[in-house]
């Protein structure tokens, strides 16, 4: 296993991690401010990917596709917030789970109805295709490197938004005491709508960006949603910083586990057995990580107890 190969895999893990962060950040914000668990967040991811694929097919422009993804997912988020989610803030978590599960059924079957069951294809833009040469002669796909850049930039923007703007102050105040900021004259309805649409847009952006390296299809959102839950459990609910660290941990553990574990078992077992045991264990690695965090710190790494 060469140094170059290892660096590539670490980069892959980072790329996976920052994309998970885009999903987890929205989920954790929505939970932190509104106390809502949103299972339909994966559907917003899927809506972003479908909007991007359809727009790219119609116009051929990747930038327009990204804009369409942001707009479509933010709009879908705003619409479901107004029609459904709003009724759920005061309900218990069971009601929230069920209503958002119902939304998954509606969105998934709706997408299957409109776009069919076959995966759509979203091409990597010309300017970002092909490899780029990094120091030490490491060749790495330009698009994946761009994803890491975009992810880090969005993360930085989000930290700035939350720590230094008026909206950010309201969001943090909302996390601390919802009723109080309403009493202080902040328009709670508008703030909730904004936070939900922001989370939705982040999910849609992740869907569109990932859609170019995987296929765009119905059901693509839920596996990512569940990974984002693992991220949040590890990082601590409501903490953006926790979501960031958790996302990178999960991204790196998953990617490196898949690469390293079969090799590690190869030292003990014959190659065929090592490959199958290693692969099975690698798919469980992040859940084992989650169980470990749960035993040590049930409230997550950055969660308040």
């Amino acid at each position: 296993m060469s140094f170059v190969f290892l660096v590539e895999q670490v980069l892959n893990g980072l790329q996976f991690g920052v994309m998970l962060f885009l999903m987890a950040a929205g989920l954790t914000l929505i939970f932190g401010v509104m106390g809502l668990i949103n299972l339909a967040h994966g559907s917003l991811y899927m809506i972003g990917a479908f909007a991007a694929a359809a727009t790219a097919a119609a116009t051929g422009s990747f930038l327009l596709a990204l804009a369409a993804a942001l707009a479509a997912s933010a709009l879908a988020g705003a619409v479901i917030e107004r029609l459904v989610i709003r009724q759920l803030y005061d309900r218990d978590h069971l009601d929230q789970v069920l209503a958002t599960f119902a939304l998954i059924l509606i969105f998934s079957e709706g997408a299957r109805w409109v776009f069919g069951s076959f995966p759509l294809y979203l091409a990597i833009p010309e300017a970002l295709s092909g490899p780029v040469t990094l120091p030490f002669g490491i060749e790495y796909p330009r698009y994946r490197l761009a994803l890491i850049g975009i992810g880090l930039a969005v993360a930085a923007g989000l930290f700035w938004l939350i720590s230094s703007t008026r909206i950010g102050v309201q969001i943090r105040a909302g996390e601390a005491d919802r009723e109080m900021i309403g009493a202080l004259g902040v328009d709670i309805d508008r703030l909730y709508l904004l936070v939900f649409a922001l989370g939705a847009a982040l999910a849609g952006l992740a869907g569109a960006l990932i859609g170019a390296i995987q296929s765009v299809q119905v059901g693509m959102g839920e596996p990512v949603l569940i990974l984002a839950f693992v991220v949040i459990v590890i990082g601590g609910i409501g903490s953006i910083r926790g979501a960031f660290i958790g996302a990178l941990l999960v991204g790196l553990t998953d990617t490196l586990g898949r690469v390293l574990l079969p090799g590690l078992f190869g030292l003990l077992l014959d190659p065929a057995a090592a490959a199958s045991v290693g692969a099975s264990l690698a798919s469980m690695a992040i859940y084992i990580l989650m169980a470990g965090v749960l035993i040590a710190r049930p409230q997550g790494l950055f969660g308040s107890a």
Partner: peptide
């Protein structure tokens, strides 16, 4: 879709 609507 109908199941989702009923559930909702």
């Amino acid at each position: 879709i109908v199941l989702g609507a009923i559930l909702l």
